[in-house]
């Protein structure tokens, strides 16, 4: 993990906030390195505690671009508080949404359907583990057959729930890509 540095005169990369799900699932799949392609990756200490609960052997050093944030006791905006209750968001998801606001981040990496809905309703773009894996092909981090192998291993190697027919559809779409 990194700490913030001074100004370099270069354009700062746009911050991306990550929830526990993608960290856990990518670690389960052995491809946590894909997150290093997000140069300004942020999460909260609450989210990290959730990650460590599920992946106790995961060390922060595995995520060199990740910055951890402790959020102060400031109260939640009323609209977010209401959404958190209505959508039954957990503490990690809620803290990630708070961090989005504090960093004025646009992109959240998250696998929880309800948290995704809330984030999108607040104007954020949200992507999940599947997107990060597929993106690896576009970004030249993995070849197509490697991405397909990763996707096909999701049911056996990870706790990410995907309907088998949907996974098959995704793989077919990728296979058809040049």
């Amino acid at each position: 993990m990194t700490s913030s540095g001074g100004s370099t005169g270069m354009t700062e990369p746009r911050p991306v906030v990550i929830d526990a799900g993608p960290i856990i699932h990518l670690d389960e799949l052995g491809c946590l390195d894909l997150l290093a392609d997000f140069p300004s990756l942020h999460t909260t200490k609450t989210v990290w505690a959730e990650v460590v609960f599920h992946r106790p052997s995961l060390l922060p050093e595995a995520l060199p671009t990740l910055r951890l944030h402790g959020l102060g006791p400031r109260s939640l905006p009323p609209d977010l508080s209401a959404q958190a209750v209505a959508f039954d968001l957990d503490a990690g998801e809620l803290s990630a949404l708070r961090l989005m606001a504090e960093l004025t981040a646009q992109v959240l990496l998250c696998d929880d359907a309800a948290a995704r809905l809330v984030a999108e309703s607040r104007g954020h773009r949200v992507h999940g583990t599947v997107g990060v894996i597929v993106r690896a092909m576009r970004r030249g981090l993995r070849r197509k057959h490697e991405v397909l192998a990763l996707l096909q291993s999701i049911p056996e190697r990870s706790t990410l729930h995907l309907k088998p027919s949907l996974l098959c559809e995704v793989c077919q779409r990728l296979d058809a890509e040049a």
Partner: peptide
């Protein structure tokens, strides 16, 4: 309500679209 199958599928398709063409 928040885990309807059509919603979950749409989210995965969005992920793939971003992954391929973001």
């Amino acid at each position: 309500q928040s885990h309807r199958t059509d919603l979950l599928e749409a989210q995965v398709h969005d992920d793939v679209e971003w992954g391929l063409h973001g």
